[in-house]
């Protein structure tokens, strides 16, 4: 649905995005993570044809955004952090204004979308009277009006209270489930990303430092936490049986290729070792992200423009 191919974006001498390639497959909820200034908004700007890449190609829905912007964005909706509208006009008028930049929209469709986001009854009020939550719903309504196949959400929960964040999370899941939308979500809220996204990309100082499924990021595939009566003896036994390749911290064992936890339990119980607890070690996205950032910050200075 979205394909970025070797993208560079320089502002003056500073490279805001460097050699970025990523693929957002159709039907995914794809998370874009990174610290402030990591290049997330610049990358989103390039996907929407608002920021011109210095090098590389950006394709949305199969069309090059730089040369075929109108076709590429025909089925795209977007929401930005802190939604802004024409405050002196009604919500309904705002929706009419924004939707007409895509194409004609019937009153029936407008009503349908207003109802979907839960703004019925307030659509004729001036936007200046709306709460932050209502503005976010209006932003969602304008993004949904062109019946998009792709929704780009840049920090959609920014400034929302906990209830608002919860509501937004459910709305995103509903959009994905009921309308089958592909969603690109840029967020600082790791918990939110963890609950929503199927795939993530982490940016650090304009460069991609991780791309993969959420499971890949949060699961340390080969580490298993084991609580038994005699840990060193259990380790020896498992190594002899070639079920593990090593141990760590007196409580973790490293699974051998092809081995699984059920075989470990079977081997230990058969040898008379009591097994009190066994579980694959799972990391939270937060610990994964923080580790990643820590390792990156010790590595690279901020990129400057490459000399050609």
């Amino acid at each position: 649905m979205i394909a970025l191919d070797n993208i560079d974006k320089a502002f003056g001498r500073r490279l805001a995005v460097s050699n970025l390639s990523l693929q957002v497959p159709r039907g995914e909820i794809y998370g874009l993570l990174g610290h402030n200034g990591a290049g997330k908004s610049t990358a989103i700007g390039m996907m929407l044809g608002q920021v011109w890449p210095s090098r590389g190609t950006v394709r949305v829905g199969g069309f090059d955004v730089t040369t075929q912007r109108t076709r590429a964005l025909q089925k795209v909706g977007a929401i930005f952090e802190t939604p802004v509208f024409y405050d002196y006009l009604s919500g309904w008028r705002n929706l009419e204004i924004l939707s007409h930049y895509t194409g004609p929209v019937s009153d029936t469709r407008l009503k349908e979308v207003v109802e979907w986001v839960g703004l019925t009854g307030r659509e004729q009020s001036k936007v200046r009277t709306y709460s932050h939550g209502m503005r976010t719903r209006l932003a969602l309504a304008q993004a949904l009006l062109p019946a998009p196949e792709l929704l780009i959400l840049d920090e959609p929960s920014d400034g929302l209270d906990p209830e608002g964040i919860h509501e937004m999370r459910h709305t995103i899941l509903r959009l994905h489930r009921e309308l089958g939308l592909t969603i690109l979500l840029s967020s600082h809220l790791l918990n939110e990303v963890e609950q929503l996204c199927t795939r993530i990309c982490v940016l650090h100082q304009g460069e991609k430092v991780f791309e993969g499924s959420l499971a890949e990021a949060t699961q340390t595939r080969h580490y298993v936490r084991l609580k038994t009566g005699d840990f060193p003896a259990a380790v020896r036994l498992l190594e002899e049986n070639r079920l593990i390749t090593g141990s760590r911290d007196g409580k973790y064992v490293i699974l051998a290729e092809g081995a699984d936890t059920d075989q470990i339990v079977k081997a230990l119980v058969a040898a008379g070792h009591p097994v009190f607890e066994i579980a694959r070690e799972e990391r939270t996205l937060e610990s994964f992200y923080l580790n990643l950032m820590q390792s990156q910050s010790t590595k690279t200075p901020p990129p400057l423009l490459r000399a050609n």
């Binding site: 929407l48 044809g49 608002q50 912007r69 109108t70 076709r71 590429a72 964005l73 025909q74 795209v76 909706g77 977007a78 930005f80 802190t82 939604p83 802004v84 509208f85 024409y86 924004l98 930049y101 895509t102 304008q142 062109p146 780009i152």
Partner: peptide, 18 residues
């Protein structure tokens, strides 16, 4: 300045047309 231009330019409208 207000940020509404970004909302508009997430739509398939050319800059010259706008």
């Amino acid at each position: 300045e207000d940020g509404t231009l970004r909302m508009i330019l997430s739509r398939p409208v050319t800059r010259v047309r706008l």
